[in-house]
Design a protein around this nucleic acid. Structure first.
Lengths: 107, 107
DNA sequence: ACATGAGCTTACTTTAAGTAACATGCCAAA
DNA sequence: TTTGGCATGTTACTTAAAGTAAGCTCATGT
């Protein structure tokens, strides 16, 4: 249980990606800007955690939050360049899942 | 908070990868077979959770566990084909981290 | 008989996630 | 002018997951 000797950037990246829901949220936003309720209904995440995750991702510079003061207010979340750069990661996960995870049950 | 309409394989993959430590463990095993204490000392994971994760990964068919009845017993963990197939995912995360995560502090 | 090393396991504490109800700000209908 | 509804959260509380530390097992070595 000592400190790591790994590339700290990789570890940091992993730390971000390995929080529950983060990957799915990023993947969802790769489809284009979306609002809170839209993301919320894309998978069974609670509003509380979605709010927290979006804040985290915004803090990391991965997600951008735009407020449109319409009525009712519209808030759109989208990926920054840093966020969009995660696309290849998502693609590889998708490829792997497609090839190695059976649709009915996992082997 | 309803059921998803996403590709369930992708979700399943994400679910595996987004458990804390899983990615780092897989990445570590990409360097070749390793024993428990070796993985344990590669990053600050507790033995309790490492044990749990290795069991999960074995169950998922990603990790293989080989017992060598020497003295003291040696147990080697290695990646199956399914596990090795995660290499491109790791590479992409590494690429992203390299390009977008500053070494000193994250932007 | 006691100690050692690897690989867990059990009991307990702390942190993260889930649930549900409520706050806010604005407008529209009753 | 009170009521209600929509969108985006937030607060208070409960459950699940992760962390910590101590102990167990097996075989051997002193």
């Amino acid at each position: 249980m000592n400190e790591t000797t790994l590339c700290p950037r990789f570890e940091k990246g992993m730390q971000i990606l390995s929080k529950r829901w983060t990957g799915l949220i990023v993947n969802q936003l790769l489809n284009g800007p979306q609002r809170f309720c839209n993301i919320e209904s894309a998978f069974p995440i609670s509003g509380r955690i979605l709010s927290e995750r979006l804040k985290d991702l915004e803090f990391e510079g991965i997600v951008k939050r735009d407020v449109y003061p319409e009525t009712p207010v519209r808030i759109e979340y989208s990926l920054t360049e840093k966020g969009k750069a995660l696309a290849p990661v998502m693609v590889e996960i998708q490829n792997w899942a497609q090839e190695w995870l059976a649709p009915i049950q996992n082997q």
